[in-house]
């Protein structure tokens, strides 16, 4: 879940820009995707009528879909993200979202249940104590934000592929689609091959402590082979599906595969 960072030392100047982007209504954001070069460089250079930005936007969307296919082709399900020693962990690890920490979902762990839907044999919901009993592993990997910054963190949880096996998921399905407790309904699709990657994790702890609110309590999906915004926090449900259901940022133009 990328977008705005607050706690990275020395880079807060960008908040100015981010704020101005945030205040832009979504429609104009989209319109700007294509027409945003207000110096008119494109019109000048290509002679195309970029004012008719819909054609440029369609072109960019097609290329982004093509890039999804290229990335899926490049993706090696056995290639592991580099791991690091504890000494390399970034402190403090940045809180990052498109809202302030005060506005982050405040989930009551006692009431929370992970809902499981779609192409799975066992659709029972899981309470937190039930999930905590599953075997857990720790990884220290680099989180890379779509914005360009990165930070190394320590995440502990259950490998997603073990859980998918446990619930009898149809792993031939195309996606695992996550929904989150964020009030705008954050969601994000994860391609099945990445969901089955050995390092893709249902995360319950950060730095060996129960996942704090800032990092996605009660559960985050840690995917070290994807950009940060495809690492959903505050997850409330997962659905195994063959349908592409879109995602919060994917629908706004971030490349959907966004694999590393």
């Amino acid at each position: 879940m990328a977008k705005r960072s607050f706690l990275i030392p020395g880079v807060d100047k960008r908040l100015l820009i981010k704020d101005s982007i945030k205040t832009m209504p979504e429609v104009s954001r989209r319109r700007f995707i294509a027409g945003g070069a207000s110096l008119g460089a494109l019109t000048l250079l290509t002679g195309c009528d970029v004012i008719d930005s819909s054609s440029a936007e369609e072109m960019l969307k097609s290329v982004s879909k093509f890039n999804d296919a290229v990335q899926a082709f490049i993706f090696n399900p056995d290639a592991l993200a580099p791991t690091f020693p504890e000494s390399a962990i970034t402190k403090p690890f940045p809180f990052n979202a498109y809202y302030d920490l005060d506005d982050a979902p405040d989930v009551d762990g006692a009431d929370w249940k992970l809902e499981v839907r779609g192409l799975v044999d066992n659709k029972k919901s899981w309470t937190l104590p039930e999930l905590y009993k599953l075997p857990q592993v720790t990884q220290i990997t680099r989180h890379i934000c779509v914005e360009g910054w990165s930070a190394i963190g320590s995440w502990t949880g259950t490998p997603m592929r073990d859980f998918l096996k446990l619930i009898g998921a149809d792993t031939r399905a195309k996606y695992v689609w996550f929904q989150c407790a964020d009030k705008d309904g954050y969601n994000s699709p994860l391609d099945m091959r990445t969901a089955l990657h050995p390092q893709t994790q249902m995360t319950f702890k950060y730095a060996n402590e129960i996942l704090p609110r800032a990092y996605g309590f009660p559960m985050k999906i840690r995917v070290p082979t994807k950009l940060g915004f495809k690492n959903p926090k505050y997850v409330v449900s997962m659905e195994v599906t063959n349908d592409y259901k879109g995602g919060y940022w994917e629908d706004q133009g971030y490349n959907s595969f966004s694999g590393s």
């Binding site: 995707i33 945003g36 070069a37 460089a41 960019l60 982004s64 779509v146 133009g253």
Partner: peptide, 15 residues
């Protein structure tokens, strides 16, 4: 800058 916002800039860059 090109693209209007980060998402647009990325689309242009990766095209």
């Amino acid at each position: 800058t090109l693209g209007g916002w980060l998402g647009g800039g990325l689309l242009w860059h990766f095209a």
